Amino acid sequence: MKNHSAVDIFLSFYAWCCAFILTSAVLTILGYLLFHGLSSLNLDLIFAHTPVMDALFLKKQVFGGLLPAITGTLALIFLSMLFALPVGIATGIFLSEFARSGTRKILGLMFDIMASLPSIVVGLFGFAVTIFLHQHFFKQLYPCLLISALCLAFLVIPYIIRSTQIALESLPPQVRLTGPALGATRTQNLWYVLIPMAAKEIIGGIILAIGRSAEDTAVIMLTGAVATAGVPNSIFSGYEALPFFIYYTAAEYANTSELMKAYGAALILLFICGGLYLFAYWIKRKVR
């Protein structure tokens, strides 16, 4: 008993130490960004010298401010989720409720391999496909917002699939039998019982996918993000994005003021991600 007690104490101490180190690292990073970037957060950082109302109503283009990058980032997240959510959730439902054992194992292995792909590989593949389509089918197609959104959707789909599949498979047997016991068909049981009961865990996977699509840089730098493009006027145009702006500015800044803009952009990106997480968490609470 004494040995077991010592092991339990050691494991508990080790777990607390790991949690403390991780929390300290996150707080250190946040504190560093706040210390360096908080002073640069102002309207000039976002709108530069353009009047605020003219910029918001697109009467004048913003050059030198972060409004185009913020707009491009939000458009990128929206489009990638628009493509990824229906496919990911439907595939997760298929694997959990309709696929045979052999099919489930093969597809599960494929999706696990997809999830492990480096984002730079996905970006390079999207760039190669764009060049192929440009040369043989669509002469007007270039790297653009649509290509970046499709590549990001491909990148996050495995997370949505797995979270949906695991959420449905984790439901207890008595929940699964509730609908059929009341005379519901398989589809009715899935739609009215299983999916609502698993919705909280499914939304958790969606939150992770949103974070991944908001922060990835390798994919967008190969498939459409540019340093100066203004607010995108269509899904087939180039665009600016906060992750690419941070990477580009931090790598090639000429003076301290430009580096401070990168810190400010990093804070804005964190605020956007935090706002999206809180919105998703609110939906999660409502669903529960």
Rank of each mutant, 00 (worst) to 15 (best):
H4I: 13
S5D: 00
D8S: 15
L11V: 00
L11N: 09
Y14V: 13
C17P: 02
A19V: 03
L22D: 03
T23D: 07
S24E: 14
L33D: 13
F35A: 09
F35C: 12
H36C: 00
G37E: 12
S40N: 15
S40M: 04
L41C: 05
N42C: 12
L45D: 09
I46V: 14
A48V: 04
H49A: 13
P51N: 10
P51V: 14
L58Q: 13
V62D: 12
G64F: 00
L67N: 02
L67T: 02
P68R: 02
G72F: 11
L74P: 03
L74Y: 13
I77A: 15
M81R: 08
L82W: 04
F83D: 02
A84D: 11
P86Y: 15
I89G: 06
A90Y: 13
T91W: 05
G92Q: 01
F94C: 04
F94S: 10
L95R: 14
L95V: 08
L95W: 00
F98Y: 10
A99M: 11
A99D: 06
S101M: 05
G102F: 07
T103E: 14
K105N: 13
K105H: 04
L107T: 10
D112N: 14
M114W: 07
S116L: 08
S116E: 09
L117E: 00
I120P: 14
I120N: 06
F125V: 10
G126W: 12
L133H: 06
L133A: 15
H134C: 10
F137M: 12
K139C: 09
P143E: 07
L145H: 04
I147T: 13
L150Q: 08
C151I: 03
A153M: 04
L155T: 00
I157G: 00
Y159M: 13
Y159P: 10
I161R: 11
R162E: 06
S163Y: 08
S163W: 09
T164Y: 14
Q165E: 06
I166T: 01
A167P: 06
L168N: 00
Q174E: 13
Q174R: 09
V175A: 06
R176H: 02
L177M: 01
L177C: 01
L177W: 07
T178E: 03
P180F: 06
A181R: 06
A181I: 01
R186M: 05
L190C: 05
W191I: 13
Y192P: 05
I195V: 01
I195W: 02
P196Q: 01
A199M: 07
E201P: 03
I203P: 01
G204T: 04
I210Q: 11
E215G: 07
V219L: 01
L222K: 05
T223V: 10
T223C: 12
A225W: 01
A225I: 11
A227N: 03
T228E: 10
A229K: 05
G230V: 11
G230M: 12
G230L: 15
I235W: 08
F236S: 00
E240L: 07
L242E: 15
L242C: 04
F244M: 08
I246L: 15
Y247T: 03
Y247V: 08
Y248G: 09
T249V: 04
E252T: 09
E252G: 12
A254E: 11
N255S: 06
L259C: 03
A262V: 05
A266D: 07
C273V: 14
A280K: 10
A280N: 08
Y281C: 11
Y281L: 08
K284I: 02
K286E: 14
K286F: 09
